[in-house]
Structures are given as C-alpha cells and as structure tokens.
Amino acid sequence: MLRCEAPVYRPRTLTDAIYARADMPDATVIAGGTDVMVYLESGSLKPTRFLDLWDCSGLRWQQFITGGQFCGAGLTCTDAIRSPQTHPLVREACSTVGAVQIQNRATIGGNICNSSPAGDTLPVWLALDAEFELASMRGRRRVPAASFWKGYKQIDLRPDELLVGVLLPQTTGETHFRKVGTRMAQSISKVIFAGRYRRGVEARLAFGAVGPTPMRCREAEAALVAGRPVDEVVALVEAEITPIDDVRSTADYRRKVAGNIVRRWLASL
C-alpha cells in the first residue's frame, strides 16, 4: 500500500478530457487502472498527477460505421466480449486478458497505449489494419496501427493527445488468434498471434511478445500472398521476429512456437 498523494482530474466528457490533456501533458492517463495501479504499487511509476478517463462518457461504445466499425478506447474487455458487434478476433483477444475481474476494468485503449509488447489485443489491431483515432485541441488525426508502436513502450501519441478509439475497416479473409501464455488464465503472453489471410490477395501475420513492439512479418506475408510453400513462410516468420530470453520464457521457445502456430493455421486452411 504505497501512498500516492498525486491529484487526479476526472473529466466527465471527452471535450473536457481533451482540454484537460492540453493543460496537463505531464499527467499519467488512467482508465481501468489494471496496469497503472500495478506500476504505482511496485514503485516503478512516479506520477505528478493523473488524468482519469474511467468515467469519461463518449469513450465506452462501439458501432458500425460506413466501411467498418468504431470501437471506443474506453471499452472494457468485458464490454467487447459481450457485445454482438465485436469483431471475433477482438473478442477472442479480450477473453484471454487476465481473468474476469481484470476484463471488467481493463480497456482496449489502455491495452493499446500501455504498449506492452505482450499486450494481448495488439496483434489483432495489426491483423485488422486498424487505425487509431487520436484527439487533441489541435484536432483529430488517425494513425495506422502498423506505425503506432515505434519502439519498446514508445507510441505515436503526442503529449497533448488522447486515444479516442479504434477504426476497424471492413476486411476479408480467414482470421486466426492464438495466445500462448504462462497458464490458462491470469497469464502474460509468451507469444500472441493474430492472422488474416485471403488466398492470393492479402495476408497479415501479426505477433506480440516476440520483439520490442507488436509486429507484422511483412516478408512472410508477401511470400504467403505469392503462394510460396508454408515452410518458406514459416522460415520467414522465424527470421523476422526478434524474441528475447526473459524470466517467462526463452527466445528459442518463442521463435519455435510462433512458427508452429503459423504452420498449423495455414495447414488448416
């Protein structure tokens, strides 16, 4: 129970939140708290103040829009699991986050902006060609998921910006999600995979926990679209990812598993 005296500003509307963000670019943004509170208790976070978006209306909704779907950044994993509108890949990813109590608080936006390379939903956004909508006093802009995570825990989000939501364009093809974690629940990923493939047209092979950021294996994707043999695609995946040894697993394991998952999925199509 580390005592934290830092003040909290709790905007109720998105407009208030965006104004507040402009005023307090140093603030730590918190939503469901499932990451921030852990950092705070462990002492790794030294906050000056907080911007709390948990009760901010206008973030916790999703709907179909022309040419796709919009998911509010404040959607919790439970919201996403329960909504019939949720894309199946998003639902699968959200249902592997922590356990029920975590899913009830953890938000999509938090998972994206925390930008842990092992974030469970992150490869899904890559596989679905998602765009993140960022808002500030200066206006709104959209950043493709593929260019959002720039380095280990580095994201393309300016100090005055907030993530408002995710735009999922209409996509085609077979999809697949697989999380390999430390156990069946309450588990941090060792390897996460999200894939989308339409034979001869396009392929997305996206991974988490195998490099400093979630990543797509673009050479493997190209080989797949070009109709190269599965073994060749798998070899490219294994070459493109850059996993490390840590207390949870080994680079060798992660590399082998990443290849196996892709091989199994492609063989099943």
Binding site: A93, S95, R178, R264
Partner: peptide, 9 residues
C-alpha cells in the same frame, strides 16, 4: 479449450 486456443493439435 478456452478461448484463444483454437485449432491446436
């Protein structure tokens, strides 16, 4: 199998 684990052998 729980969600997130499909198509395993």
């Amino acid at each position: 199998l729980r969600p997130g684990v499909t198509g395993a052998s």
